[in-house]
Design a protein around this nucleic acid. Structure first.
Length: 400
DNA sequence: GTCAATTCACATGAAAGAGACCACGGTCTAGTG
DNA sequence: CTAGACCGTGGTCTCTTTCATGTGAATTGACGA
């Protein structure tokens, strides 16, 4: 028996997982613990829709991994089940963050049309044409109510501006048979302050806040899922608690907790441990962080990589802070040496801002009086990942 | 010494351009009967 | 006669550039004590 055979054959017997799906991000469980109140509230808002009455727009806010999406989808599924034969109601879920699917005004409407059974090209049509098609389709479909669930609505507004929301709500006046209601989900608390007051008051006719889970609630959730996901007796004492503690520290992010547990399981499996131990959680935490970071670096566009490479080199031989000007000069040289296109300082400034958002650097705008105003940049890549990051950059930049 | 004006080195915004991608309709071409 | 190849037009989308405006405090210089 070859080595490969051994690996393949033993995988079933040795596996700690019963059903790994349960820990995956897109899994939706039958019960959602500790969210009864929220679910009831959502249901009470949406309930009149069963009678074909126009419902209030609903705005939901909560940090990532607090069960917003899950709860809304749960209610929406129940509602759809109940309204299936009456044909008065239609609900569609759209995640505005999905790149290339629904992150522009055009694409959001194209996606809605597709879900309604229409056909619309991915690009090439004028936007108002898409609007018209959408309206036609709605009128033809005869449902009295159309509920749009816009997940990560803050992302969309940030990218597109808020008038697409305004347009969406204004459509109601152009529709005779159908009414549109919006359920907006956001994890940015400041989102509502950014948008047009008219849109704001209309969108948040009803508001609901999802508080973060505390450590005990997280434990509860984890325990339930772990029962389904792992074979019995696989999870050591304290593992669940540790997972919960890690995630509770990050604003009670349940998704994070589940990831942590799943990866810990994979690690334990790989080292052929019969059980998941606490140390695997620590490893898991490292691994998740590391993978996320390296993934960002590797998949970044070339110009981003060049800028990052400049920062890394500058950070190495000076312990003091680095400033925008330094980075740009280094970057400029680097581009000339490697015959790459050189971006303007304006653009590099934006790239630096994006790195800050991604958490690759910590940047702070400071003023040095007569010496100007600039970003003070500190690299946020941990020491132990520097070498690996650099390798990746050098490899993918391939300096001719 | 005090106070307002100045000045630096960018940050931040807005608008517009380049180039990739795509749909659509019209024209041309070659293949078929 | 017709299916398919090949334009040109007109649209979106992303990444950039260009032009403009904003900004916080060290520095400067006028002023009065």
């Amino acid at each position: 028996m070859s080595n490969l055979d051994k690996i393949f054959n033993s995988v079933g017997a040795r596996s700690l997982f019963k059903n790994k799906q349960v820990l995956q991000a897109n899994y939706s469980p039958e019960t959602i613990p500790h969210r009864d109140k929220e679910i009831e509230y959502i249901a009470s808002i949406l309930a009149p829709s069963l009678l074909g009455q126009k419902i209030s727009n609903l705005f939901i806010y909560g940090k990532t991994g607090t069960g917003k999406t899950l709860s809304v989808q749960h209610v929406s599924n129940e509602l759809s089940k109940r309204s299936k034969d009456s044909q008065v109601l239609r609900m569609e879920y759209i995640n505005c963050k999905l790149k290339k699917v629904a992150d522009t005004e055009y694409r959001i409407f194209a996606e809605l049309i597709n879900k309604l059974g229409g056909d619309v090209p991915k690009t090439g049509l004028p936007t108002d044409e898409v609007y018209r098609k959408f309206i036609d389709l709605l009128e033809k479909n005869n449902e009295k109510l159309f509920i749009v669930i816009l997940d990560e609505i803050d992302q969309a507004v940030k990218k597109i501006s808020d008038d697409f929301l305004y347009n969406l709500m204004r459509l109601n006046s152009e529709l005779n048979k159908t009414q549109i209601s919006i359920v907006g989900i956001s994890n940015d608390a400041k989102f509502l302050e950014m948008i047009d007051p008219r849109v704001k008051s209309s969108l948040s006719e009803e508001e609901l806040v999802f508080p973060p889970y505390n450590a005990l609630q997280l434990q509860d959730i984890l325990r339930k899922r772990a029962e389904e996901a792992f074979k019995s007796g696989v999870v050591s004492d304290g593992v669940i608690a540790k997972c919960a503690a890690y995630a509770a520290r990050e604003h009670g992010d349940a998704r994070r907790a589940l990831d942590l547990l799943r990866v810990a399981g994979e690690i334990a499996e790989r080292v052929s441990s019969p059980k998941i131990e606490i140390k695997h959680i620590d490893e898991s935490n490292d691994k998740i962080e590391r993978d996320k970071l390296l993934d960002i670096i590797e998949s970044a566009p070339k110009q981003f990589q060049l800028v990052l490479f400049s920062i890394m080199n500058l950070a190495k031989d000076s312990k003091e802070a680095i400033f925008t000007g330094d980075v740009f000069n280094y970057y400029d040289d680097l581009c000339k040496k490697s015959h790459a296109d050189i971006l303007t300082q304006r653009r590099v400034s934006d790239i630096l801002a994006e790195f800050d958002m991604l958490g690759l650097i910590n940047a702070r705008v400071i003023s040095k009086g007569r010496k100007g105003r600039m970003r003070e940049i500190k690299l946020a890549i941990p020491e132990n990942l520097m070498e690996r990051s650099k390798e990746i950059l050098i490899k993918s930049l391939d300096f001719n």
